[in-house]
């Protein structure tokens, strides 16, 4: 039982969150700049492919670029795999919550936002991505469930990477981060097949099965990802506070 009452220093402070962000800048600065440049570059390439190439050529290129953006986001946690100073990071005079806000915020909010800025801009300018175009390109009907599932899937992959990186010894942090993303993706693919099969078994398979039930399937998968995200975040927060 803690015999000391919580002093003002031990309450969450925005100033200290800014200091923790500053502390991690030597780790993240290059990535932040690199990711911004890369996301604009990829967006430019997508624009070029979409505007000037025939659809048969453009679609695989656009898919490839989308996968590249997804991979960049998923592996963003690798930046914390640096083999230095784990003890002093744990002992950094800030609350575990403040460190978690910075580290998880970097992986789950900052990097996704950076990678989305060009897409958001082009969407806001109304020139490139309309619902119809995305649906046409990727062969799916874009609805709320698909969007939510896609976002949660990427977030959960990124958090898997972070969890593995933080939770393993310095020597294997990078390797385990990469393996975690691959492992999580394969598990999710398996879960996706399982959920689809399960619903098909209950409802009966028909030619219009995906049209009829895609929303249900994606909702179930989004829920699975959502639960996993909460679990992974709790685990990450714990490791960030106390170390391995």
């Amino acid at each position: 039982m803690n015999t000391q009452t919580l002093s003002n220093t031990d309450r969450t402070s925005w100033k200290r969150i800014a200091m923790v962000w500053n502390f991690y800048l030597p780790y993240t600065r290059k990535k932040l700049i690199g990711f911004t440049i890369l996301s604009f570059l990829v967006e430019g390439m997508m624009y070029y492919a979409y505007t000037y190439m025939p659809q048969q050529t453009a679609t695989p290129i656009l898919l490839m670029l989308s996968v590249m953006i997804a991979a960049l986001m998923s592996f963003s946690g690798l930046v914390f795999a640096k083999p230095r100073g784990r003890e002093l990071q744990t002992l950094l005079p800030a609350l575990g919550m403040e460190k978690s806000i910075v580290i998880i915020g970097y992986v789950a909010v900052v990097i996704p936002l950076l990678l989305s800025i060009p897409s958001l801009l082009s969407w806001l300018l109304g020139s490139l991505y309309t619902e119809r175009n995305v649906a046409l390109l990727f062969g799916i009907e874009l609805n709320a469930s698909v969007v939510v599932y896609s976002v949660l899937m990427l977030e959960s992959m990124a958090l898997s990477c972070l969890w593995a990186v933080l939770g393993t010894s310095r020597k294997f942090a990078m390797r385990n981060g990469i393996l975690a993303v691959i492992g999580y993706y394969l598990t999710l693919s398996f879960a996706s097949g399982f959920v689809t099969g399960f619903i098909a078994g209950i409802k009966g398979y028909s030619d219009n099965f995906m049209d009829d039930y895609s929303q249900t399937i994606y909702s179930v998968l989004a829920t699975i990802c959502g639960i996993y995200i909460i679990f992974a975040m709790i685990k990450c927060c714990r490791i960030i506070k106390h170390g391995i």
Binding site: N2, T3, L6, D10, L91, L92, P93, L95, K241, H242
Partner: peptide
Amino acid sequence: GARSYDLLPSILS
């Protein structure tokens, strides 16, 4: 008086 494992900023600093 504070548990070290609680890792309070007031102690860590």
